[in-house]
């Protein structure tokens, strides 16, 4: 009691200590996240090109939208916001993200439920199921590209063998199947990740609740919807948001599997294309900035709608 006037209180001391422990990480984040982000936003407001990275001049928001009235009275709109290729990429990305995350969550949940059950060799199966996640995306994308190849691919061979198709499908070439091909590979690759996160949630569920339900004779389907699902919901929501963030900035898989196909081009792919291939660095930077903004909005809305608890307060 007497020490209260002598110096900072215990909680103040703890806060100060916490700050100093966090400082190195904040500094690192500032360097590797905040600085590149701010610089990209700055580039997007200039006319920088790759051959002249430091000589860009301020042009305001022309990379986003510029309106010019010609002498003839015709109005010309330019910029990313009226670029059909950009909106096509946005649509592709959103379509991809929603579909892939939906299937990954569903399959991940099923896999997690299976792995949560007691059976012999469970440890081995848990390790084995992580293999697709452990393979670098470039490698697995190349591997799948060969498997999906129309002439030599094993997928067509199997489907033909079973008589499921009567003609070889050009998976990555045809605009109708290109997105499906990308989705198949992504779901194959990321389901284990989802399964693992959900499994962690499942293991937090106390066993005695299940026992009580069993004694009361509740049927398993009801147990799942009334007990399991509500209890793993926080873990599930966090897993979904992780995947969503990942899916919205998908680049490598699309770039390797179906490069340049308008049916699968995502926001990251088109922004890179402008920056590097077309020497429109500032224009690409504007698209990167928009990508950042779209992800930020998406995540905020999700957290707000789903009331996802990222602070951990609810756990106390």
């Amino acid at each position: 009691m007497a020490t209260s006037n002598d110096g900072p209180s215990l909680s103040q001391q703890r806060q100060r200590a916490a700050f100093w422990f966090l400082a190195p990480m904040l500094l690192a984040l500032l360097c590797v996240a905040a600085w590149p982000l701010l610089r990209t936003i700055w580039f997007s407001l200039t006319d920088t090109s790759l051959n002249n990275l430091y000589g860009g001049e301020w042009i305001g928001f022309d990379n986003y939208l510029s309106i010019r009235v010609l002498e003839s009275g015709r109005v010309i709109y330019r910029g990313t916001l009226v670029d059909a290729a950009w909106w096509n990429a946005v649509w592709n990305t959103v379509r991809f993200a929603v579909t892939s995350v939906f299937f990954e969550t569903l399959l991940g949940l099923i896999v997690a439920l299976v792995l949560n059950a007691e059976f012999k060799g469970r440890g081995l199966v848990r390790a084995a199921i992580l293999i697709p996640w452990a393979i670098p995306t470039i490698v697995s994308a190349k591997m799948w590209a060969w498997m999906l190849n129309d002439q030599f691919g094993i997928i067509n061979d199997i489907l033909l063998g079973f008589g499921l198709i009567d003609q070889k499908i050009a998976w990555t070439a045809s605009p109708d199947t290109a997105m499906t091909a990308v989705l198949i590979v992504d779901i194959w690759k990321t389901t284990p990740f989802m399964a693992l996160l959900i499994l962690a949630g499942l293991q937090m569920v106390p066993r005695d609740i299940y026992e009580a339900a069993r004694i009361d004779g509740v049927n398993p389907v009801k147990v799942f919807f009334r007990i399991t699902l509500p209890l793993i919901r926080p873990a599930l929501m966090v897993a979904v948001i992780f995947r969503m963030l990942d899916a919205l900035r998908i680049f490598d898989l699309v770039y390797v599997l179906t490069p340049n196909s308008a049916a699968t081009k995502t926001m990251s792919v088109i922004s890179r294309e402008n920056m590097i291939d077309f020497d429109k660095f500032a224009y690409g930077a504007a698209q990167s900035t928009l990508l950042f903004a779209i992800i930020a909005v998406f995540v905020s809305v999700y957290i707000w709608l789903g009331r996802v608890d990222l602070s951990g307060e609810g756990q106390r």
Partner: peptide
């Protein structure tokens, strides 16, 4: 030409 030709580069064509 196979429909997959729309995904062929030089090496895929040479493969066939």
């Amino acid at each position: 030409s196979p429909e997959g030709v729309l995904a062929y580069q030089e090496e895929e064509a040479r493969g066939v």
